[in-house]
Amino acid sequence: MRLSAQERLAYPLLVPAAALIGALILYPIGATIVTAFATTDKLGRIVGVAGWRNFQALAADPAFWQIFRRTFVWTAIAVAVKTTAGLAFALLLNLPFHGRRAVRLLTVIPWALPYPISAMIWQWTYNSQFGLLNRFLQATGLWPHPPAWLASPGSAFAANLIVDIWIGLPFFALVFLAGLQAISPEYHEAAAIDGAGAAARFAAVTLPFLRPVIVMASLLSVIWTFNDFSVPYIVTKGGPINTTDILVTHLYKTAFQFLDFGPASAIAIITFLTLLAFSLLYARLYFREVG
């Protein structure tokens, strides 16, 4: 293969990035695939061939299927709420009122905080005895008898969802706001002259222009939400009794608490393939709508 002058320049420039990606992402993906079909000792060393046994064991485990389904429910609810509420919030921030710059700046805070620290703050906020959330709900009469959030499976799952949504909302609000501000006001004016009311203008002008932004942001968020390790791991620790674990926390516990590296690698492969499907969809849409 003859290299062009530009290629002789380009490939050396790519070496550091390619070496890092190869050593710390591509090689580990290969190693995970190998381990998923192997039996390991408690140090993670491969000691034998397992064939499909790790996968078969997972398929036969009702707890795994529960966690698998829960991960999809978790992702679907969180992304749907973040997209809708984020859009509403962006429309609000797009109103020309004084002080919106300050509001926008404060909005950033939940996004800027480290996930684990947000999770710890919320864990304390949820405390049924000393936490201020239930105190607030009772004092204002919004919810006279709020649940002990982290004590039962349903409310604990809801509690985790709230934290994930709280963390992710600013990203949506700000990306959508940027999208809204990129729409030339002339389109709205033209629609208004044609007699379109606010709702009609939203449906006919705002939404179509925002479509690529909404699609891209939601897909990104699907992946981030699917991967949100810190929130379930810290706020509820996956409990009570594994009822709030999602795939990534289950994978972590299987590997680093129970030291079952073979089955954990099988879970990793399933997670990887699921995410890869989403990523390829994203890449396809990206190159079609933006690239």
Binding site: A18, I223, F256, A268, S279
Partner: peptide, 23 residues
């Protein structure tokens, strides 16, 4: 290469946590 970057941006680090630990 661009596609690889895009896919890595979407990648879950936990998937490769075990081999990274071994490395």
């Amino acid at each position: 290469f661009m596609l690889l970057l895009l896919l890595i941006q979407m990648f879950s680090p936990i998937v490769v946590l075990i081999p990274l630990f071994k490395i």
